[in-house]
Each structure stands twice: as C-alpha cells, then as structure tokens.
Nucleic acid binder design. Structure first.
Lengths: 147, 147
DNA sequence: CCCATTTAGTTATCATGATAACTAATGGAG
DNA sequence: CTCCATTAGTTATCATGATAACTAAATGGG
C-alpha cells in the first residue's frame, strides 16, 4: 500500500526535481497519483471483504479455482503460482478455507505429496454472493479513473 | 496489495459478465491491470527500501517533514494526517526513527501533549541518499505505464 | 474552581504479509 | 536396491498494517 495522502505540489516537485531529472515532474506526479488511486481501491476491496467476514486473498483463491476452464480441482502449487503470495500464506489461508468447508481436499494422484483443492458447494455459493460487491467496486474504480 | 498474477482471459470474463454488466469487460480488466501494475511498483519500492535497511513508511514520514515549505518541525497528528496510516503505526515508526537519530523531538509549545518532530542532519542526508533510487523506480513505473 | 468531556498520543493485541528452515515423498545415479 | 538431491508443502518466527482501550493534558459549563 502507498500511504501518501497528498500528492506533492509543484513547489515540492521543483524542490526535488534535481533528483529525478530528466524524468518530467508530471510523470513522477502521475505515477504517485496512480499508486495512491490503486491503494485506495485495494483498501476498499479489503474493507468490503472484511465486512463480509472474508478477505481479498481468500476470495482470490476461490476465484482462481473457479475460473479454471477444464480442471475442477487445482494443485497447491498451481494456486501459489497464480496468486502472487508466498507459500506459507497460501497454506494458512487454504487451511482456513477448509475449516469453513469452502474448499475440499482431493488427494488423488500417485504423488502422495501433492494436494488438490476443489470448491465445495458452499464455496461456490459464497464466491457468487461476493461477486456483485466486488465487481461494483471495480466498476466504481473504472469510473473514477476516467474522470 | 493485489496479488492476482494473471489477468482474466476473455473466456473468464464472459463467464462472470452477468455479475458486472453493464460495466464493460474491458473496463474491469483495465482496472485489474492497473491494480496489478501499481502493486508491483509498490513491491519494488518496498524491496528497495528493505535492501537499504529502511522502509517505505519511514521514508514517507521523513519526506513529509522535509517537504513542508515553512515549518521545519511537524506535529505528530499532522504527520498522521498526511501519511494515511493509523496512529499506532506512526507512533511505532517514529520511535524507530528517533532511535536511529534521524528525527529529533521538539517539545515546544504550551500544550504538553503535543509532540513536534524535525529532521536531524543525519535524517536529511539519509533521505537524500534514498532519493535517487526512489525516483528511479517511479520513473521506471512511468515508462512502463506508457508502453 | 471543579468535574466532565475532548484531544493527543501510547499500549496491547490481532491480522496477514514475508523468509528460513524444516519434514516427507519422489526420482535418478551408481 | 540404496542413497542423495530435488520437489511439495508445513512450521516457526518476524515485520508491519489495523482496532480498541488506555493515560495524560487541556478545556469549558456550572
């Protein structure tokens, strides 16, 4: 998250310009504005999921499994690859999803180390119940961007 | 941070389109791309400061004090307002900056609750030593955006 | 002037990200 | 077949964000 509330004023950027020349001040300010805008959107998403006793990461893991075209179960390491988060965090989050019966462990395959996870019925309906608010926030962000 | 590595394919968005209509799929995908891009930039910034035994928040607090035109010391609550982070986190971070002698406490004023903080000489030079890498990353992000 | 309320900042505790080091299963060289 | 290196996932611990509840100082109505 990028926490600077106020973007630098022109007076400030000119004070620091010697550090970033030849990049134009407007470019620097533009990037800062983008970082700030994205951080606020992410914050709103996190608040939305928290209000619904969920988390962005839990949601992303469910959607990643759901959106796969052919497979109906995904391997742990595939999930780790698609969600750009460290393995221990995925382990912990999947554990909580299992405890809530939103995911099911599928121990098929010859390799006894591998773990496959599929959405449960509750998992899928929970996911769908979260879609409207999620896409609403993304839509709002899209609007805010053009304005 | 937004962790989804792969943006949804057209096949995926059409699967979910009923949840976000009438917003156009390209808009949703566009916002997701922006969130992802910003998250990666923030990650690079955090990695940069970590490599330099610093943190993005520590840096932002220093720059906020430095960039104020007239005042050479800022009040705790002013810092909290400008950096969009909770008070306890600011307390903790300022404490670490004091321990490293990068900030100085200025207990002036009649209100004995108030605390004012100013950059020390080391604080200012530390800040300046971090500028080039910081603005380099912002410049890179600006380039990546236009491409 | 006194007590209740407000304001400034801190402490305690939790949530969720990371890295390092671990266990258990696999697989390939000899 | 045996043993060592590799791969899959977990455990332990830390870093840094949050909220709630706290202490101490200021303020204002009676």
């Amino acid at each position: 998250m990028f926490f600077l509330k106020d973007l630098p004023t022109p007076a400030m950027t000119s004070k620091y310009a010697r550090f970033f020349a030849p990049v134009e001040p407007e470019q620097i300010v533009g990037v800062l504005a983008d970082l700030r805008r994205a951080s606020l959107t992410i914050r709103r998403l996190e608040a939305y999921f928290r209000e619904n006793d969920f988390s962005l990461l839990r949601f992303l893991i469910l959607i990643i499994i759901d959106r796969e075209p052919e497979k109906e179960a995904l391997q742990f390491s595939e999930i780790v690859e698609k969600v750009d988060v460290s393995k221990p965090v995925v382990t912990r989050t999947i554990k909580s999803l299992l405890e809530d019966d939103l995911l099911m462990l599928r121990c098929e395959g010859s390799d006894k180390r591998m773990k496959m996870y599929a959405l449960s019925k509750e998992g899928r309906s929970r996911l769908e119940s979260l879609f409207p608010g999620y896409f609403k926030l993304l839509g709002d962000a899209a609007e805010g961007e053009s304005s």
